[in-house]
Amino acid sequence: MIVPLLRGLRLTLKRFFSRPVTIQYPEQKREVAPRWRGVHFFERNEKGDTRCVACGLCVAVCPSNCIHLVAVELESGERYPETYEINVTRCIFCGFCAEACPVNAIKLGKNYEFVDYRREDFVLDKERLLANAPKEG
């Protein structure tokens, strides 16, 4: 009876001297896969505004119906998303929106840290989507 116990403790003791596998999150952050689908963001156009032309394809393709879009026509004739909201609590992060986007405006970023206290705060509007864009470099 004592022998199996000692055998077990030997394994434990051996681990004391091997490299640890645990990542010390949140001090330490893990690099995600290149095709990781994290929190959404908007790409900017040359004017610094969203590239989105409000075509509505992401809304059409979204399987969980979590995108709300109100498209308007500007005086210049361009289409523009007056309201663009993604309800992240409903989102299943399938990435179809990014796939459907004809102008590569909506993308899924690498960020997976998204916590808040209220449900309303999980609705990403245009400004937050723009702010979510990864920093240069």
Binding site: G56, A60, V70
Partner: peptide
């Protein structure tokens, strides 16, 4: 030719 009165536009399926 497109209509200009409504600022808001939507796709036919919407």
């Amino acid at each position: 030719l497109t209509e200009r009165v409504s600022r808001i536009k939507a796709r036919p399926w919407q």
